[in-house]
Design a protein around this nucleic acid. Sequence first.
DNA 1: ATATTAAGTAATGTATATGTTACACTGTGT
DNA 2: ACACAGTGTAACATATACATTACTTAATAT
Lengths: 76, 76
Amino acid sequence: MMNQVKMARIQADLTQQQLADRTGVTRQTISLIEKGTYNPSLKLCLNICYALNRKLDDLFWVQSEETKHEKIADER
Amino acid sequence: MMNQVKMARIQADLTQQQLADRTGVTRQTISLIEKGTYNPSLKLCLNICYALNRKLDDLFWVQSEETKHEKIADER
DNA sequence: ATATTAAGTAATGTATATGTTACACTGTGT
DNA sequence: ACACAGTGTAACATATACATTACTTAATAT
């Protein structure tokens, strides 16, 4: 589950702990989400968005496997 | 947890059962998500997006309580 | 050298998302 | 009147998100 949380957090100049505090979870949860091994709840995704002043698609959108090919075709 | 799933599903002319089949969950799960009593996982949100050809912000974005006021102020 | 901060990760417990089965209600068609 | 499709919802079981605690490593500062 790839995402842009780590990039956005660093751009916002926050530590994992600071982001965790602002989103109401523990640092460990943030770490696992950034590493991509977790499948976070929508509510947590939204809280991360609020803390980083982003929207869902900025941080969490991933293209479906099927439409990836169309994208490649578009780029040609 | 308000969302636009029901609207988008009806616009796509799908039943809850059809959407459930396409997203790999049961009809009950779709029903509860549409009703807003569930806090679905990101993976399920993405699968619903794929099935309805939408993006996360279209179906699942909800403004934070704090920024709601700013929005209202903007509209004045 | 030592202390401190940021981050990765493992073990264990709890809360909850989701599945399964089943029943009820509403509307529509016959 | 009956059948059926679509939906809401409840009870119970299972998987997993998330918390808690704790250990480790790397980097930086004193």
